[in-house]
């Protein structure tokens, strides 16, 4: 499993750069998620950015080290939690005879747009950010894990990644 050079990640330079970069990418992703209601972006774009941060980490550092930060199990639990939360917000709207997915938290319409002015919009935005990022990370992780479990029998592997 931990075989050879190509599972340990990439070169030292790439790893160092990644270590610095990942925080910024994550921060940017979270920003895009949170400010989707006043500027372009939103849960989906931000979620993909966050997923990309973890994918970059996996590519640079290898699977084992990334798993310490975010295991596949945790990613699956978080994705499901996000979905259940979204669904729960929708069902909560039904309480008291209102409609499914009713925006029951919508704030004062005259106020200037703030972080929480959209009622359920902001909550759903965050939930979607979590769902998208975790699902996509999971998809990527399982794709790369599958490659490992093959043992690369019939392939003449020369090293990891197109970049090296």
């Amino acid at each position: 499993m931990s075989g050879g050079t190509h599972q340990g990640g990439m070169s030292l330079i790439v790893r160092t750069v990644t270590r610095w970069l990942k925080a910024f990418i994550l921060l940017f992703g979270i920003y895009v998620v949170l400010y989707g209601h006043v500027s372009p972006g939103g849960g989906f774009a931000g979620g993909v950015v966050i997923a990309c941060a973890y994918i970059l980490l996996t590519l640079a550092e290898g699977r084992e080290r990334t798993a310490r930060l975010l295991s596949e199990r945790l990613a699956a639990v978080l994705a499901v939690a996000g979905l259940l939360f979204f669904l729960g917000v929708g069902l909560a709207g039904m309480v008291g005879g209102r409609a499914f997915l009713d925006n029951f938290l919508v704030g004062d319409s005259g106020a200037e747009p703030a972080l929480a002015s959209g009622g359920i919009i902001e909550l759903c935005e965050i939930a979607i950010g979590i769902i998208v990022s975790m699902s996509l990370f999971l998809a990527f992780a399982v794709l790369s894990r599958f490659r490992v479990s093959l043992g690369d029998g019939d392939e003449t592997a020369t090293g990891e990644g197109g970049a090296s």
């Binding site: 989906f44 998208v132 996509l136 998809a139 399982v142 794709l143 599958f146 490659r147």
Partner: peptide, 16 residues
């Protein structure tokens, strides 16, 4: 777009 991405991910998994 997101649906397209989802289909792509599943189909790549099938390809692999």
């Amino acid at each position: 777009i997101v649906i397209g991405l989802a289909v792509l991910a599943l189909m790549v998994a099938l390809c692999v």
